[in-house]
Nucleic acid binder design. Structure first.
Lengths: 193, 193
DNA sequence: TTGACTAGACCGACCAGTCGGTTTATTTTC
DNA sequence: GAAAATAAACCGACTGGTCGGTCTAGTCAA
């Protein structure tokens, strides 16, 4: 179903991922999507409402990629957890070559666009909650005192990814994202040995 | 020496740290600094040139804070390295309560403002090179194979901080920065035990 | 015929940057 | 050492253009 609304959302997603929210104008979006301004403001009450919809769609697609990896077939929970992190490291260039929409929106809009800020908060929490059980076996295998929880590991992994994206942009070198995740992998390996 | 130029730079630094580069207008800056538009474009050939100057000043101030901590008095290199990370964790709310200018600029401008992008690349490399020898003792004390270098630890610590800032903005909770650094501290402690 | 949807001209706020001109400080000349 | 000349700093109205959003006029399916 390529309705005008869904077309605007996916077009905006593509443009905003590369140029960011503020630098992507409504005119640009409707022109690329081949619809009119009236159509836009019939479907969305504001650019911000479109932004929230874009974040949602981006999140759903991210979930799909996260859930499709050979790591899932591994029986041993600890091995599966480690393979998951490796899977994300390998997939990172494709996933975040142009940055992460959620992180980019958070940096640019959390202080000025409350509706999008609330949306991001919810999506990030959701993602963290989904990753936590996957990483939990690492936390359980850690024998040191002051061991992190699965939830904390999930939260930190997300922080490392977002940080890797920032470093990638600062250096103009996308491989920095995989470097950051690789270092996270060193961390969890150190925890379980 | 409170020349008009230095006044504009520090005023812009304060405004841009909170609202970001793109959302801080030249009119806003000159109005807050109490100077005229003509004066602005006499001192800077463009807003971008001011942006680069702001990044430089922010970097210098960051260096100063990084270099003033009781960790420096510790004799044992490994203990000093660990105390340094703890020092940064403790100082993180004050340092990055409103975000990190370098990270914010990197996210927003690296693709569109080449002069600022080059400036960020240089400043980030500089910071990494200064932190690396401080963290080197941790790398040396690590007995596991595939041990990180001091430089890699420095790079990762910066990534973790920037990632913590993104998470803090996404959740509207500044304490997430300290949480991220705390997790990095768990990592280096795991490396040296 | 009614209501969802589309079209695109139009609006006012805003923005980076320009330009002609004034004021202030420094140097040169007699 | 005063006047003249030069240079640098500073001023703010103005310009051309962009942006998010509105409004009126239609189209089309039920």
């Amino acid at each position: 179903m390529a309705t005008a609304k869904s077309k605007m959302i996916s077009t905006a997603r593509g443009l905003m991922l590369i140029r960011g929210y503020n630098s992507t104008s409504v005119d640009e979006i409707i022109s690329a999507a081949g619809v009119s301004k009236g159509s836009f403001y019939h479907s969305f009450k504001s650019k911000e409402e479109l932004g929230a919809a874009v974040a949602e769609e981006y999140f759903e697609e991210g979930l799909a990629v996260m859930g499709t990896g050979s790591y899932q077939e591994i029986q041993d929970p600890l091995e599966r957890a480690l393979a998951f992190v490796e899977h994300i490291e390998k997939a990172s260039p494709a996933l975040w070559n142009h940055g992460c929409m959620l992180g980019s929106f958070a940096m640019d809009l959390s202080g000025t666009h409350p509706a999008i800020a609330a949306c991001l908060n919810r999506l990030m929490d959701n993602l963290e909650a989904r990753m936590a059980p996957l990483l939990e076996p690492i936390a359980l295998a850690c024998r040191c005192d002051d061991a992190p929880s699965g939830r904390e590991l999930a939260n930190h992994m997300m922080a490392v990814i977002e940080g890797g994206i920032v470093m990638a942009k600062a250096h103009g070198d996308p491989s920095r994202i995989a470097t950051a995740i690789h270092e996270f992998r060193r961390y969890v390996k150190a925890l379980v040995t």
